[in-house]
Design a protein around this nucleic acid. Structure first.
Lengths: 148, 148
DNA sequence: GAGAAGATATTGCATATGCAAGTTTCAGAG
DNA sequence: CTCTGAAACTTGCATATGCAATATCTTCTC
């Protein structure tokens, strides 16, 4: 242990650092599980949001899972190209072109659900019951980005 | 709530999704705090690891904070260019060129420590005492990527 | 109905992340 | 001493992420 208080404090205690590390480790687990299906774990998470809440606008997806709109524009492009999701309204809509899951997207979700459960099991084992509960609780408690 | 079990289960319960979301929210808090200092929060976390454990090789940084080597190659380049860190050994080292913090890097750490503490306070407030303890605990309990 | 105000989406720029493949360098076998 | 294998690093490719600025479309006001 070094004698530089600030450095140690940040290195050991930074909540962001810990959260990012945890996210990296978990992402690895789920990405491994999803690889056979040609979908990244982060894309799966977007897909289930659209499947559950769609038709839903990008901005509302962002509010739900704390993602920037510009990130969504790009991440969703890949998913649109893969025909997992589609835009609902015609181009003349303008402000907001809500997205929904396609039949293919829904089928994919069914196909990979077993693999996802395996990954979830592994993650659960890694975190322990307490950890799992706390993580779910923590993320539920996050204040929604100001809705109008 | 929809009637599609799998979708709801993943949307609500995916530990990876929650962890990534939490990481995004926290990253926002610390990035805001670090912006005046011209350093990203993720870079700060790398910097403190080097400051605390340096001279340290990329691979060992990776093992410590669960980061891929290729990611480190690139992320550290920016920090080398900013003269926050430097390579220690002369070119004849070969396998492994350990990194250490520079005087400038150390000075930067001192300068931003107050702002970091503010961010940490905000994060703590957001997560609560329980959440904080659990997050620190969780991330400490992660199995070290196999050391030789 | 034209123009202002506001919301939504996209684009440019920079960084973060990881896999697979390739490179460099060291250490040990013979 | 040379060859070979392992370890550390780098590069190519693809995706993820967010800020600032811009574009687009809606609605409200006059």
């Amino acid at each position: 242990m070094s004698r530089h208080g600030v450095i140690d404090e940040i290195a050991q205690g930074c909540l962001m650092g810990r959260a990012r590390m945890l996210a990296r480790v978990l992402t690895g687990i789920y990405d491994d599980a999803m690889r056979p299906f040609g979908i990244k774990a982060s894309q799966l998470n977007l897909l289930v949001v659209v499947a559950q809440l769609g038709p839903i606008r990008r901005i509302d997806i962002g509010r739900t899972i704390h993602l920037d709109s510009s990130t969504l524009t790009r991440n969703l492009q890949v998913m649109l190209a893969n025909d997992w999701i589609e835009e609902t309204a015609s181009a003349e809509d303008g402000r907001g072109r809500p997205l929904r899951v396609t039949a293919q997207g829904r089928a994919l979700l069914q196909k990979l659900s077993g693999a996802w459960k395996d990954a979830q099991r592994k993650a659960r084992k890694l975190l322990g019951t307490d950890g799992e509960a706390m993580l779910l609780d923590l993320s539920s408690g996050l204040p929604r980005p100001d809705a109008p």
